[in-house]
């Protein structure tokens, strides 16, 4: 369920890195807590975000949840799929429904994030 090569935050975001580019999303656990997702608000490409700062927000019918960036960097690409199909975030949060891709400015930050195993213990899905 939670890919080994991803890194996770306690705020329920994940990041996977390939060649200096990080792909960011929210976790399966997070989408389950939110319920049916109806809207995703994301920054424009080119925006510079800092680790732990608000990246955007995800909305269900009766709740809004801020998404915090797991790492610092400049946004390269935003997932257009979510504009018209926010429900994909419920269906495939670790795959097709990634939120943004960014250029990591401080790759060392990854060291402070949770591993798949630790995250699963954190959310109580694994003893």
């Amino acid at each position: 369920m939670y890919p080994e090569n991803f890194r996770y935050t306690k705020e329920h975001e994940w990041v996977s890195v390939e060649g200096g580019v990080g792909t960011i999303g929210i976790t399966h656990h997070a989408q389950g807590e939110l319920g049916d997702i109806v809207y995703v608000d994301l920054p424009r490409a080119g925006t510079v975000v800092a680790q732990g700062k608000t990246l955007g927000s995800v909305e269900s019918v009766k709740a809004v949840s801020d998404v915090y960036s797991p790492v610092s960097g400049e946004i390269l690409e935003v997932n257009e799929l979510l504009t018209n199909s926010p429900e994909k975030l419920n269906e495939d949060p670790h795959g097709a429904a990634w939120l943004v891709k960014l250029h990591l400015s401080a790759p060392d930050e990854l060291l402070h994030l949770l591993s798949s195993a630790d995250y699963q213990i954190y959310v109580g899905e694994k003893a």
Binding site: E59, S60, V61, K62, A63, V64
Partner: peptide, 12 residues
Amino acid sequence: LSTREQHIRREK
């Protein structure tokens, strides 16, 4: 679109 409103988003 109630998430715009005060009872959900409060100060935002």
